[in-house]
Each structure stands twice: as C-alpha cells, then as structure tokens.
Design a protein around this nucleic acid. Sequence first.
DNA 1: GTTTATGCAAATTCTTTGCAATACT
DNA 2: AGTATTGCAAAGAATTTGCATAAAC
Lengths: 140, 140
Amino acid sequence: MGNIPNTTNILKDNKLRVTSCRRDVLATFITRKVALSHSDLEEALKENFDRVTIYRTLKTFLDSDLIHKVLDDSGATKYALCTHNRSEPHHEHEHVHFKCEKCGKTNCIEEVSLPKIALPAGYLSKEMSLLVVGICKECS
Amino acid sequence: MGNIPNTTNILKDNKLRVTSCRRDVLATFITRKVALSHSDLEEALKENFDRVTIYRTLKTFLDSDLIHKVLDDSGATKYALCTHNRSEPHHEHEHVHFKCEKCGKTNCIEEVSLPKIALPAGYLSKEMSLLVVGICKECS
DNA sequence: GTTTATGCAAATTCTTTGCAATACT
DNA sequence: AGTATTGCAAAGAATTTGCATAAAC
C-alpha cells in the first residue's frame, strides 16, 4: 500500500501529520469503499501497525471529521469517510447507510437523501442517521 | 420494585418463566420509558442481580422480541421495549429513535413513521432505523 | 530541536461460557 | 420431579492509558 493518490494531501489539508499508518488507514477506506470496523482495519494492517495505533488513528480521524461513525445493528462500531465538501461550514447533518444481511457490508448511500421529518413539538433535530438493512445489489 | 402491573403476564404471554430478575428488568424498561443499556440496568439492579444474569435476560428478551436493539451514536448498545401488537405476524420493520445530546436519553418516537425511501435499483430493504440526534423536549 | 505519533506492556471495561446450586412450573 | 435460570468464577474480547523510543515538521 502507500501509492494511493491523495492520502498525503488529505492529511495535510486536515492539519494532521503525515504518517504511514494514517496514510494506510485512509487508503483502506478509499479503496474498500465500505464502512470498516477497527477489526477490519486491524486485520488489513496488522503486519504493519499496532492495534493501539489503529485505535488512535481512528480517534484522530473522528476528531478531524475525516471519518464518522456508522450505525450498525450488530454491536460493532464501524466508520466511513466523510464525503462532505470541506469548504462547507461543518459536518453533514444526515447519513443514509445500507447494510447487507448477506455479505455484511455497510455502505453510504449518497444518492438518497432523507426527507424532512416532522418531530413532535419541542424536539430539536441536529443530525439524522438512517440505517437500512436488507440485501444489496451484489447479493440479490 | 416488583409491584409494577403486568410484568408477570407479559412474561407468561411470551412463554418465558417468571423470575424476579426478568420482572425487574421489564419493570425498569416500563417505568423509565427510555432506551437502556446493559450498564443502566446493572446500575439499577446490581444490588439484586448479577451482571451476567442481566446479560442473559437481555438476550432472552431479544430472542422473544420483547425488546429490540436501539442504535446509538456512542458505542453503547441500548435496548427498548417492542411496542408492536403481538397479534400481528412479526416485528416492527421500522424504528424511529431520538437521542438527546444534553441528557443522553434515547427514546422511541411512536408518533412519527418513516416515509418510504426510494433506494437505488437492486437494493432490497427489510428493516429501517432512524436515529435523530438533537435536543429533547425537557432539555430545550 | 521541538512536538507529535508509535509500539509495547498493562490496566480497564465489556461480554461470554461452564458448572453447581437454586428456583420455576 | 424435571427443566430452565441464576450466581460465581474465570475466560476471552474490546478499548484505554502510560511511558520510553522513533518519526515528523
């Protein structure tokens, strides 16, 4: 790994030091295109980096809004790249994710956006995440 | 605890043996009215029951569809009572939950139902969960 | 040269499993 | 009486923390 374009620039843009662990974690997210758990990354990179370093890398990326948590119906915490335009003020405020029951993969569905939902009076919505569980294109 | 109505009947209706741990866990869900994690229950009931028994009780209730997992943006797995009519065939297929950033409480919003969402071709949806994060009635 | 990230060890926390004693029906 | 549940001990995962070494700027 290490030859994926951009990882260095992405890190620099986010004012993070460029290290090989960070570049490899980022590259793994970019090439796999699905939400990844810590253990997915550990398995992919354990030859090269310590488990703990991967935990810390994920935390760093979360803090920099480079990745976000993806809800999951099993216990596992998964993460995915944030795709929002960095020139925009902050965050995406909604996420739509699809998890396939068969292959277990979860990915972001960019094409779909959440309709506005009328909450009961008094509730203030700041962020919404929709998880759809079913069968994906490849498995159906 | 122990005087909450119905817990015995609910257990019987679900063909579960009536034990005091199960009644107390059920009663805690009924009275608190919010999604609870294992550690919430442990804290509430640790004088009376073992940590392990609470884990097993949650698993039993999940298997009987008495409770369901509630997605959460922190790591914690939370659970809430299923409110569906037991005469209906099976499961609810959608859940809308609200998590308050301030007080941390999560509850089911029964009033709102999810609009149908058009997924990209090839995706088959079986179940949907929406988590809305924001400020609740009490905290705003 | 200064600051920050990494690896390793070890501490915590979370969850599961085995088995004998107990409680439920 | 027979079967399922509980408590305790202990194993196994998952996650966090401290500190000396190494790498980035």
